[in-house]
Simulated assay, not measured.
Amino acid sequence: MTNPNLRWIPLLAITLIVTALAPTLLWMRESPLLALALFERESYNLEISYQITVLLLVLIVIAIVAVMTGKAGLSYLNLRNRDGRICPEPWIGLKPSASDTWNNVGRNMAIVITSVTAVVIYFQVIRGESIHVDLFPGLALIVVFALMNAFSEEIIFRFSFVAVVHRFGYSPYVGQGLAAATFGIVHYFGTPGGIPGVLMAAYIGWLLAKSMFETKGFFWALTIHFLQDVVIFFALLMK
C-alpha cells in the first residue's frame, strides 16, 4: 500500500485483529479446540491443547503481517539483534546512562521483572497453598509451556503492532501504546489478574514493544516474557 492517505488501514486492521484475538484466547483457555490426552494430569493436557491451538492462530497472524509489511516487518523476528540505543523514558523507570544499551539494561530488566512477577504471583496464586513439585514431566513441561506461551503472546500483542507501525511510518509510541493497552486489558482476566495484573501487563507491553523497536529484534521481548511465564506456570501447575 503506497498511498500515504491510506496507511491507517493496515494499522486499523491489525488493531481489530488483535482486539478480537484477546477475548478469543480467554475463551479458548476455558474451552480448548483440541482435546489432547498425552499426560496423566489433566492440567497438562489442557495446557498443551491450548498452546498448540494458539500456535496455529499465531501462524495466521504472522502470515497476515507478512502480507501487510513484507520483509521490513518480518525482520523484527530476528533473535540475534540484542543491542541498541535506549531512548530514555523516566516515567517507566528507564533512565539509562550514556553507556547503557539494551545488552545490559535488558538483562537487568529481565531480573527485576521476573522478581516482581514472582512476588505478585505468590500473593495472587500461591499464598496459603502447598506446592508439590513434579520433577518429570512437570518441570520440563513448564519450560515448554512458558516458551510456547511467550512466543505466541509476543507475536500477537507485540510483533504485530511493531511491524505494522514500522512499515507504515508511525511513531513507535503508537505501537507501544497499542501493545500496552491490549495486553494490559486482557490481563484483567489473566494471571496475574485484576488491577495489579492490568498495570503490570501494560508496563510489560510498553517495555517489550520498545525493546523490539530499539533493537530491531525479538530477543529481549521473548526472553523477558519467557522468564515471567516460567514463574507463572510453576505456580499454576505445581500447586
Rank of each mutant, 00 (worst) to 15 (best):
Arg107Gln: 07
Ile121Phe: 08
Ile60Asp: 03
Gly93Thr: 04
Glu153Val: 08
Asn108Glu: 15
Val165Phe: 01
Asp83Ala: 08
Val61Ile: 02
Asn78Ile: 01
Asn104Pro: 06
Gly70Lys: 08
Leu56Pro: 04
Tyr76Thr: 00
Ser130Trp: 05
Ile155Met: 06
Val125Lys: 09
Cys87Asn: 14
Leu77Ile: 05
Ile92Cys: 07
Ile121Val: 14
Glu154Arg: 13
Gly93Phe: 07
Leu94His: 04
Tyr122Thr: 03
Asp100Gly: 04
Ile52Lys: 00
Val58Ile: 12
Thr117Gly: 08
Ile62Glu: 02
Gly106Thr: 02
Leu59Asp: 01
Gly128Ile: 09
Val116Ser: 08
Asn103Gln: 14
Gly106Ser: 04
Tyr50Pro: 05
Ser152Gln: 12
Arg127Ser: 13
Asp83Tyr: 13
Glu89Ile: 13
Phe136Gly: 10
Val144Gln: 10
Leu147Thr: 09
Val65Ile: 01
Ile113Ala: 03
Val54Gly: 01
Val125Leu: 07
Arg80Asp: 12
Ser160Tyr: 05
Ala140Thr: 15
Lys71Gln: 14
Phe123Ala: 03
Val120Ile: 15
Val112Gln: 05
Trp91Glu: 15
Val105Gly: 11
Ser75Leu: 13
Gly73Leu: 01
Phe161Asn: 00
Val143Arg: 12
Asn108Thr: 14
Asn108His: 11
Ile62Asn: 00
Gln51Glu: 11
Val133Leu: 10
Val164Asp: 07
Ile113Tyr: 05
Gly106Trp: 06
Ile142Ser: 12
Gly128Arg: 03
Ser97Asp: 11
Ile62Val: 11
Leu59Asn: 04
Ser97Pro: 00
Asp134Lys: 04
Phe161Gln: 04
Asn78Glu: 03
Leu139Pro: 11
Glu153Asp: 06
Val133Ala: 09
Phe157Val: 03
Pro88Cys: 10
Thr53Gln: 11
Ile62Leu: 14
Asn104Leu: 06
Val120Ala: 13
Ile126Ala: 14
Gly84Tyr: 00
Ala150Trp: 10
Val58Asp: 03
Ala66Asn: 12
Asn104Ile: 09
Thr101Cys: 06
Ser49Glu: 00
Ser49Phe: 00
